[in-house]
Simulated scan of single mutants.
Amino acid sequence: MKVTAEHNERMAKLTFASVYPHYLTKIERKGRTKEELHQVIKWLTGFDESKIQEYITDKITFETFFNNAKLNPNASLIKGVICGYRIEEIDNALTQKVRYLDKLVDELAKGRPMEKILRKG
């Protein structure tokens, strides 16, 4: 699928707080934990537990979320298709980062080992 300007705008305005419960439900339904979800978020963004909670409470947009993140240098190793989009072909940096997070959550829910999710080999 081709990413459109409208899609990019929607990603920017989406709040982390609106998506987080879906991430949590998805991974818990598959036997993973909130702690594992937070480990994945921290790996990608550098945000600790209190920062994650603050961003949920403050209902910040993904645009602000990723503007404040220190993206992991290995994030570019996240490849594949998520929601019909090939991650490595997304040319909008913000949309690509949102899809990185979606992909990591998806891998967590599918039972992938944490060392693989965190691109450790």
Rank of each mutant, 00 (worst) to 15 (best):
M1T: 12
A5I: 08
E6I: 08
N8L: 09
E9D: 03
E9P: 04
M11D: 07
M11R: 00
A12G: 13
A12S: 15
A12C: 11
L14S: 06
L14Q: 00
L14W: 09
T15W: 02
T15I: 01
A17I: 08
A17H: 08
S18G: 05
P21G: 03
H22W: 13
L24V: 01
K26P: 15
K26L: 05
K26D: 13
K26R: 02
K26F: 06
I27T: 02
E28Y: 06
R29F: 09
K30R: 10
K30A: 07
G31C: 04
R32Y: 15
K34C: 14
K34D: 05
E35W: 15
E35I: 11
E36I: 14
L37N: 02
H38S: 11
H38T: 08
H38I: 10
V40S: 04
I41L: 02
I41D: 00
I41W: 01
K42G: 07
K42D: 08
W43S: 05
L44W: 00
L44C: 00
T45I: 02
T45G: 08
G46I: 00
F47C: 04
D48Q: 10
D48H: 06
E49S: 01
E49R: 02
E49M: 11
E49H: 00
S50I: 14
S50W: 14
K51S: 10
Q53T: 15
Q53Y: 09
Q53L: 15
E54V: 09
E54D: 02
Y55E: 04
D58K: 12
K59W: 04
I60C: 08
I60E: 01
T61V: 08
T61W: 00
F62T: 01
F62G: 00
E63H: 14
E63G: 10
F65A: 00
F65H: 05
F66E: 03
F66I: 10
F66D: 03
N67Q: 14
N67I: 15
N68H: 06
A69F: 02
K70L: 00
L71Y: 04
L71I: 03
L71W: 12
N72E: 10
N74R: 13
N74Q: 10
A75E: 04
A75M: 00
L77P: 13
L77I: 15
I78L: 13
V81W: 06
V81M: 02
V81Y: 01
V81E: 03
C83M: 11
Y85M: 12
Y85L: 15
R86W: 11
I87E: 00
E88R: 05
E88T: 01
E88V: 03
I90Q: 05
I90M: 02
N92T: 07
N92E: 08
N92I: 12
A93E: 06
L94H: 02
L94D: 04
T95H: 10
T95F: 09
T95N: 01
Q96V: 09
Q96H: 13
Q96F: 07
Y100D: 00
Y100T: 09
L101N: 03
L101A: 03
D102R: 05
E107M: 05
K110W: 13
K110Q: 13
G111R: 10
M114F: 10
M114E: 14
E115A: 15
K116C: 10
K116S: 11
I117Q: 07
I117A: 09
L118Y: 14
R119T: 11
R119H: 15
K120E: 12
K120Q: 07
G121K: 12
G121W: 06
G121N: 08
